[in-house]
């Protein structure tokens, strides 16, 4: 403020205020359309779906009579719904855990600054460029069970040729491992993405830290356990969120690869929701599944949002 007089200071203040006001109006105007769209098309429809799930709309003609939680009750009594929830749990655990582990392993290997790193990085990342539909179709053939009469294809053929025929299984047609087969395909698709995130993280860890740990006598394993992994925690967390919500919404992969499968052992809630709504015309029950999925995703996302918001405030 030093050398300026009060009048000059006041003019500057007014000018700033005017400019601020114009900026504010402009920014509000700029945000308004998308904010309105989000309000209507996201939150509005969440509200509508939630309302429908408590309504009596279980045939084609909309019927918005409030019937309480009876749709949810019906869902819980439906053995197929319970199976889909269990499948979702197994799938999410395997897919998130598997992608993180495989992605981390690939990242560590590439971080050794091997020859042709760029080539391998691209190879591992490529599956991410495919849609789940393509992945599903490819893995539908790779994991095809085959039969003694018609012969094997894909992985089973590979096992046969390696003399490991006893390892052949029915893959996605086997009720015991159906959903695991779907998880394998999903891991194949997403682990490259996790690798890229971890690789960026690993490159961000200063070499000095590792050096210091080595000087202190830490083994390579201990360096990873006590230095690298803790520093990668935000990345692990972020990757878990991304993989987690993909996993909870999984639909296209199941459609392309297996369908609901024998005894619904490859079935997932999103698929069941589609069939219940558009096939059985039970719109209210379908909305109920949508709401349950939303709640599960929220349980995953909200802690993350709180965490990252707090970090922003701190910064």
């Amino acid at each position: 403020m030093g050398g300026k007089g009060p009048a000059q200071g006041r003019a500057l203040f007014l000018d700033m205020r005017r400019r601020l006001k114009r900026d504010t109006i402009l920014s509000v105007l700029l945000v308004l359309p998308s904010a309105l769209a989000v309000l209507v098309f996201v939150y509005g429809f969440i509200g509508l779906t939630t309302y429908v799930s408590f309504s009596n709309w279980n045939r084609l003609v909309p019927d918005y009579t409030f019937v309480g939680a009876s749709n949810y009750l019906r869902l819980w009594q439906n053995p197929r719904f319970v199976i889909t929830l269990r499948n979702l749990g197994v799938f999410t655990g395997l897919f998130v855990g598997g992608s993180l582990a495989l992605g981390f392993l690939l990242a560590v290997l590439l971080d050794r600054r091997i020859k042709g790193e760029g080539f391998f990085r691209t190879v591992y990342l490529y599956p991410l460029a495919l849609s789940f539909i393509v992945t599903g179709v490819v893995w539908r053939w790779l994991l095809n069970p085959g039969s003694p009469q018609m012969g094997s294809t894909g992985i089973n053929l590979l096992l046969e040729m390696m003399g490991l025929g006893f390892l052949k299984t029915g893959w996605y047609t086997d009720p015991r491992i159906g959903i695991i087969a779907v998880a394998i395909a999903a891991i194949w698709q997403m682990s490259g993405y996790v690798m890229a995130m971890y690789l960026a993280g690993l490159r961000g860890i200063p070499e000095e830290l590792r050096e210091a740990a080595r000087v202190d006598g830490a083994s390579e394993l201990q360096i990873y356990r006590f230095v690298v992994l803790p520093m990668l925690r935000p990345i692990t967390f972020g990757a878990m969120i991304v993989l987690g919500h993909i996993s909870l919404k999984i639909y296209d992969l199941v459609v392309a690869m297996t369908g609901p499968g024998p005894g619904y052992f490859c079935d997932v809630p999103a698929y069941f929701m589609w069939e219940l709504t558009f096939r059985a015309n039970r719109f209210a029950q379908g909305a109920g599944i949508a709401v349950i999925l939303l709640v599960i995703v929220s349980l995953l996302i909200i802690p993350y949002l709180r965490h990252s918001l707090r970090r922003e405030v701190e910064a």
């Binding site: 095809n144 085959g146 039969s147 003694p148 029915g170 996605y172």
Partner: peptide, 9 residues
Amino acid sequence: DYVNPDYSA
């Protein structure tokens, strides 16, 4: 008991 094992594929 008499069908092809890969029927669901």
